[in-house]
Design a binder for these strands. Structure first.
Lengths: 110, 110
DNA sequence: GAGTTGGTTAGCCATGTGGCTAGGTAATGT
DNA sequence: ACATTACCTAGCCACATGGCTAACCAACTC
């Protein structure tokens, strides 16, 4: 039961990391550029990047001294799917309940 | 930028709590019933319930000595929306890239 | 009214997380 | 060759998180 949703959701639970993801949807970027808008030390920021990468949300390649990071949407789709499923199950249940209520109202034979 | 997505995502990053949500999509339930399938002490489990409730994923009412918990789908929809947006942005970008590649192939005037 | 049930509070503990500094290495610019 | 850039490693610290036990209260049951 403890699948990759664990690491995925906890990865995007952090605002810094969500911001990185948002940036990466506009295309790949080197570490330094990703770091720039965030007011924290580089090593701290690198930890965030590592979390994203081990959770499978990003990949990166190093060329020379520059590491370029890009996004990986597969996990996004998976998480989306889990959320959708739960919401629809609940909403489906509500639908059945209101249908039942309607039936009871009309032919009140229960 | 640090909205309720923070607490939402970190709430569902835990397998126990996701299991509770999954259970609740089949309808409201009292604390004891929710607790039953989980091999942990009640107080520990109550903490999980509290996390879910403060994150706005559930609500609960106490009647007599029984507290009944039910799900709240609004936050689910919001989180879903964030994920969808990010995925689509990225995929849209890919589309534009491949369209560009195609144009370059045909009338190679760049 | 004594016992049981369902939930709650308080407090302890180990581990995880997010921040820092200091110092290092390898590639590139001058 | 020397300096600078871009990133990485190690190690420290404070606080959050997820687990526990013990003890408690309030509501039913008998």
């Amino acid at each position: 039961m403890a699948n990759q949703l664990d690491s995925f959701f906890s990865a995007i639970a952090d605002p810094t990391r969500r911001a990185v993801i948002e940036r990466l949807t506009r295309g790949p970027a080197p570490v330094s550029e990703l770091h720039a808008p965030h007011d924290m030390a580089l090593p701290t920021f690198l930890k965030h990047l590592k979390v994203l990468e081990t959770a499978g949300l990003t990949r990166s390649v190093k060329k020379g001294r520059v590491r370029t990071v890009h996004i990986e949407t597969e996990p996004l789709a998976q998480a989306e799917h889990w959320l959708t499923t739960q919401r629809k199950l609940w909403e489906g249940r509500l639908d059945r309940l209101s249908a039942l209520a309607e039936r009871l109202e009309k032919g009140g034979d229960a």
